[in-house]
Nucleic acid binder design. Structure first.
Lengths: 120, 120
DNA sequence: TCAATAACTCAATGAATATTGAGATATTGA
DNA sequence: TCAATATCTCAATATTCATTGAGTTATTGA
């Protein structure tokens, strides 16, 4: 991931609705969720607003879509997320392991499914 | 780190000048660098523009400042960066370790000081 | 083919952000 | 105290982003 991609990923995540969509889709797993279900989960979100944010996320490469009948199913692009994490680590750690150490320590708990998932 | 803080951290990093400042300051280490030196390193950056972005970063908690004589020295806030990494991991990994695994693997090389530091 | 459903596109508006330039404040050394 | 240096603040402008509402496209089932 280069600087340009990192910038667009950060911009994509720097918006409440989009950050929520990403979290929702990561939780949803590889099968993803149809646009309508995402809108329903968000509660507030007109069709065009949702479409705007979904295409913004897709353009940034953080989510992908496929059509299934009348629905368009969105899902998280896991490699893009892990690349972003790697960028932050590499970029912000190089020469300074003290930045990453706490994050990695936190990870050991965080990656155990559904444990201490109270950060929302 | 809660959603609100994560949003402002992402917004702070979603701007070319600010991302560069953060990278510069992480490399600079805990001693930091005076505003003037940061401006010089960026090449383009009027005094007021630099000040605007530095205070944006400071407001987001990613950098801190102290006065030293005529200069104001800025430095990276390492815990804020590691919290952001942890947020991304926890948030985007929970239940889906496959997101974090590649990032953690990348880390093992990245955190060795000055090795393969060619990503800039 | 028609009506209904799901989601997208587009143009207009409003809101937030970035840049510039002029001027203010703080600090130092003569 | 004065001039020089380093940086900040403020107002104006320019740019970018988000939201809305109207209208369009694609798909399905009757």
């Amino acid at each position: 991931m280069d600087e340009t991609h990192a910038l667009s990923a950060f911009a994509a995540l720097a918006q409440e609705t989009r950050l929520r969509i990403v979290r929702l889709l990561v939780e949803a797993g590889p099968e993803g969720r149809p646009a309508g279900a995402i809108g329903a989960a968000l509660g507030d979100a007109s069709s065009s607003r949702l479409s705007f944010h979904l295409s913004h996320l897709e353009h940034a490469g953080l989510v992908q879509s496929r059509r299934d009948g009348r629905s368009i199913i969105y899902s998280a692009v896991y490699p893009a997320l892990s690349d972003l994490i790697a960028f932050l680590m590499r970029d912000c750690c190089s020469g300074h392991p003290e930045v990453c150490a706490p994050a990695v320590a936190a990870l050991s708990c965080a990656c155990e499914p559904n444990k201490d998932d109270t950060h929302a």
